[in-house]
Design a protein around this nucleic acid. Structure first.
Lengths: 352, 352
DNA sequence: CTGAAAGCGCTTACAG
DNA sequence: CTGAAAGCGCTTACAG
């Protein structure tokens, strides 16, 4: 499989490679006749210009990277896949190249953030799943390469934060639980290091305060977005506080853990315990009569992140924050609080 | 951000670019002193060699592509993500470049399979999720570029099929159901076009035959791996055949649909109906007391596919098929058939 | 141990 | 409308 190059096409067509290049790139200054001939030969030779060489030849290259932190993760919530798809789509539409980058492997190659960008010839980058304590985070903020960062605060030139109103969404979710008569509402938070966790907690608190509800401090615990931790904590909470009738979870995976725990303790969902998730992961609609949750669209997020990066690449001045919409989805894991004559709880704890 | 090139490093170090190149690539014929100086300068200038230029400069380039069919999909079963991660890991280990390719977007750009490979300078490619009727399929089989194809028959030089023993796995799964006393076992198949569907069906039939069980033909239906179709078909089957006590599903997503349908009809899982899935998707362990299923590891599959491609790239002669292990995981959605004194079924159909 | 030079496959002023 | 030539940032025989 000898590689057929632009030279072969040129020789075959009896023209210079300059002309072939221009014909293929749709320049207007090539006669229809030669253009047609060249196209015919391209077809026949099954020629395709080498993307590498092309990038090297021209001044301006448009390549957008997606930087994720790890590959060992399971992507249970489908975020990585969603972001990837959305960004890839944007790249296709804007005729940009796409490249996937993984911090853990690049860092192990001892590359700095700038080196990473230069090595890959990036014109822009979308970053997701980075922790604020990641070495790349600071470097990134300092560099002036166009960056869109998903769900993390940014600052500086050519930086943009793609996010949704986590506070409002959470408040709305908890207010829905309140509207169903719930008063003893626990919260399973994510990680205290994650921006979104803090905001979702704020929304939870906001809803309680607005309705003059006071919940014990230990109604709230952090489960690192882990199903297993959520499971443990729910068991503990339900034993300690049998009066709890609802859980607001900062992720669907944690909601799954909460439900599993509740069920195991003999509590019905949603009859005894309502569980509200967050994310609307792909399986959310299919399990346990459907998980009630806050919908967000990772595909859309990836796409919009790419769009803002692309705009920065064009030299546009962009807003420092892009806020995407959300909506509450009520499915089968939330319902009205059980009326008093049914008893409040059947827990073994019995403490109230 | 002026790009610092090898020239800048050379000038700074007072040596030729040849020497810089060799120092950076770990050639032994560079004095320790100059090597150290160069490294110091690289550090200071935050220099990183341009991967594109590097690829162009050297004869042998090692770039492996992952070709998937579509990006609109949800990846509910985590296959794409798993394959991606596994292959990326292999690329990291073998110092290969990785690139993601999507048939639907490449085809819309009117590129042939060979053009696709040339454009991206691929030395090898891993293909997944392609249908046998995809235009690329035939082209691929004809080309002699190293290809590993996941779950699809291959033939020819430098072609390898990565798969598992779908027949044996399915047979084992169904035999487990039989061992639990089930006799009326329905099957929810995938697509009649998918290789794996046919094999899983064969395993199902094999188990029944081995145990002299005869099930009506319409116990088997095809649901295209869709939760929704599985849900519909399960409802239909359960009404038509209330004697059914178990479902073998060719994917976990379909198992989810089957469970949802059974539950809605008032059947308990696994007390009334056992449901066996296939795939062990990420959430399988967390829902409904855990889905019983056949475990396969998409990450491993992607990794092994990459490995065999890499070996072909090295000129090795490889086996035409790589068969990966599986194992049955029994969790909460399967159990012994309900003993006769409890009645066989409580269905509204009542026909037996 | 080091450097000058050719080459990888393109693009793009520039000249005609 | 077309072509010769320089250049993109590297690598790699080859010569010393």
């Amino acid at each position: 499989m000898k590689k057929v190059s632009i030279k072969d096409v040129a020789r075959e067509a009896g023209v210079s490679i300059t002309t072939v290049s221009r014909a293929l790139n749709g320049y207007p200054d090539v006669s229809e006749k030669t253009k047609a001939r060249i196209e015919e030969i391209v077809e026949r030779l099954d020629y395709a210009p080498d993307a590498n060489a092309r990038a090297m030849g021209s001044k301006e290259t448009t390549k957008i990277g997606l930087l994720i932190s790890s590959l060992m993760s399971k992507d249970e919530n489908g975020f990585i896949h969603g972001h990837l798809c959305g960004l890839y789509r944007l790249c296709t539409e804007c005729d940009c190249e796409f490249v996937l980058l993984v911090t853990e492997t690049e860092q192990q190659k001892m590359l700095s953030f700038r080196q990473l960008c230069k090595k890959n010839n990036l014109s822009g980058i979308v970053v997701t799943g980075l922790r604020t304590n990641d070495p790349y985070y600071e470097e990134m903020m300092k560099s002036d390469i166009p960056c869109a960062v998903i769900d993390m605060e940014t600052s500086g030139k050519n930086k943009c934060n793609i996010t949704m109103n986590n506070i409002a969404a959470s408040q709305e979710a908890v207010e829905y639980l309140i509207s169903q008569g719930h008063r003893n509402i626990a919260m399973l938070g994510g990680s205290e290091l994650a921006d979104v966790s803090i905001k979702r907690y704020a929304g939870y608190m906001g809803a309680l305060i607005d309705h003059d509800i006071v919940c014990p401090k230990d109604y709230v615990c952090h489960c690192d977005f882990l199903e297993s931790k959520a499971y443990e904590e729910t068991k503990r909470l339900l034993r300690l506080h049998p009066e709890i009738t609802a859980f607001f979870c900062a992720s669907d995976m944690m909601a799954l853990g909460a439900i599993r725990a509740a069920l195991e303790l003999g509590r019905q969902v949603p009859e005894d315990i309502s569980v509200m998730g967050y994310d609307d992961i792909p399986v959310a609609q299919y399990v346990y009569n459907g998980l009630s949750t806050v919908h967000q669209d990772p595909n859309r997020i990836g796409y919009e992140a790419g769009r803002v990066v692309y705009r920065m690449m064009q030299g546009e001045e962009v807003e420092s924050k892009v806020v995407l919409p959300y909506h509450l989805i009520i499915r089968g894991t939330t319902g009205p609080v059980r009326s008093p004559d049914h008893g409040n709880a059947t827990a073994e704890g019995g403490k109230s």
